[in-house]
C-alpha cells in the first residue's frame, strides 16, 4: 500500500484558538504559529499527510485531504 500524499491542507482561521498542539506534534515541522497566534502551514512540501494535526485539533479547524480516498480518516 502506497503512502497517501497530500492533496490539500485547509485551516479555518476563525475556528483556530492557537493552542499550538498541531505545531508541537507535527512530525515534519510543517506548521508554525503566525504573528496573530494562529496555526499556519509554512512548509507544506514537507507534509507527509499523516493527518494527525487534523485528528488532534481541539478546534476542529484543520482539514487534510489526501490522494488516497481509502485512507480518509
Amino acid at each position: 500500500m502506497t503512502r497517501p500524499k497530500l492533496k490539500s491542507f485547509h485551516l479555518q482561521r476563525e475556528w483556530c484558538k492557537g493552542c499550538g498542539i498541531c505545531v508541537a506534534f507535527c512530525p515534519t515541522s510543517v506548521l508554525e504559529m503566525d504573528s496573530q497566534g494562529k496555526a499556519t502551514a509554512v512548509r507544506l512540501e514537507a507534509c507527509i499527510a499523516c493527518g494527525m494535526c487534523m485528528l488532534r485539533c481541539p478546534d476542529l479547524a484543520i482539514t487534510v485531504e489526501t490522494t488516497d480516498k481509502e485512507e480518509k480518516p
Binding site: W15, C16, K17, G18, D59, A61
Partner: peptide, 8 residues
Amino acid sequence: FPHMWCPG
C-alpha cells in the same frame, strides 16, 4: 463554531 471551550 468556534466552540466555547478554552484553547487547547
